[in-house]
């Protein structure tokens, strides 16, 4: 079990390295501290799951990497993003455009807004092929048909000249995956790609991504709020809360031994289709933080069952627990005592 895919992946080269990323939004009423020092790395061929609720900063983090946020109001205050050998923060917009869609592909949740309704699907798949790879119209068209077949769209040659609204939700998501894969990216960022889909269609897309990963071997960041989807897909998981990574672990370790009270509470809260839970559901009281100030203390402390004095005065760093499992918490949940080295 120790020679799991995640162990092999960690031996591979790092393709993406993010250090201390901080993103804020300035608006008239004040400042929203959306991402407050996020660090992680992504190895070649690895699938990293990023889990969190709305407002946890998971999407903003990934949008910041690719500079997909409107600036202003967004502002990346600090941090470093290395894609291979290249630093992405601070490069000129033209180079950034080459990275986006070329080396890094993006899949969004809402296909209806992400695809342009006035261009055919074929045109939109061919666009990056012509812009990034410089293919001729004819070659791009042939490649687009191949890509549509790859993502499982039936009779691709005939559907090439259809418009997005002529496709179903699941098929549109396949089109989006085809566009993201068109230039053979090193990294694919998928932002809640199955959230808007029905479960049976979600299962189709998840199977598709699994098989594409086996065939093409790109690294994937999969952002979701669904702990179920991540369990079946990811090698490693980041759990985000209040714009911070609160726990980071190989997937088995995270579900078997969740170390952060938030992760633990989330897993206990979830009803499951495979087992029956007696009585009331456990729930997490209170509300997520509003992020109108930078975190001075643990953002989960007001809702945490284990919080003690230190949690309300100091924000915990990520403690490495060994085996690639890190947690940002002052309380040692296994020992039932404050963390020793703190």
């Amino acid at each position: 079990m120790n020679v799991s895919p995640q162990a092999q992946a960690s031996a591979k080269a790092t393709v993406l390295e993010v250090r201390d990323l901080r993103t804020i939004f300035r608006f008239r009423g004040g400042t929203l501290w959306a991402v407050n020092g996020v660090s992680f790395s992504l190895a070649a061929g690895e699938l990293l799951g990023v889990v969190g609720e709305s407002g946890s900063g998971k999407s903003v983090t990934m949008m910041s990497l690719m500079k997909l946020l409107p600036m202003p109001p967004a502002e990346i205050v600090s941090g470093s993003v290395r894609l291979g050998e290249r630093e992405l923060l601070g490069i000129d917009p033209k180079t950034m455009r080459e990275v986006r869609g070329g080396e890094v592909g993006f899949i969004f949740q809402d296909t209806m807004t992400a695809l342009n309704p006035v261009f055919t699907v074929g045109y939109q798949i061919m666009e990056p092929l012509r812009a990034h790879l410089g293919l001729s119209r004819k070659a791009a068209r042939a490649r687009a048909v191949e890509l549509m077949a790859l993502v499982g769209i039936p009779s691709p040659a005939e559907r090439l000249d259809d418009y997005p609204h002529q496709f179903s939700g699941g098929m549109r998501q396949r089109v989006m995956i085809a566009i993201a894969l068109s230039c053979d990216p090193k990294v694919l960022i998928a932002d809640e790609p199955t959230t808007a889909l029905d479960v049976t269609i979600q299962a189709q897309i998840v199977e598709l991504v699994k098989s594409l990963r086996r065939e093409l071997g790109m690294a994937i960041i999969w952002i979701t709020h669904d702990l179920g989807v991540v369990a079946g897909l990811a090698d490693r998981v980041l759990v985000m809360y209040g714009g911070l990574v609160v726990e980071h672990a190989p997937v088995d370790s995270l579900y078997a031994r969740p170390q952060h009270p938030y992760t633990r509470a989330l897993l206990e809260t979830l009803p499951r289709a495979d087992t029956e839970k007696a009585g009331r559901l456990k729930s997490i009281g209170g509300q997520p933080p509003n992020l109108l100030a930078p975190p001075q203390s643990c953002p989960f402390a007001p809702r945490c069952a284990y919080a003690f004095s230190r949690c309300h005065s100091e924000n915990p760093p990520l403690f490495a627990l060994g085996g690639g499992h890190d947690v940002a918490c002052w309380w040692d949940i296994d020992q039932g005592a404050p963390r020793r080295d703190a």
Partner: peptide, 11 residues
């Protein structure tokens, strides 16, 4: 069978 289960082993 399409519903994901939050447990890697079971998945």
């Amino acid at each position: 069978s399409a519903i994901p289960i939050p447990e890697p082993e079971a998945e």
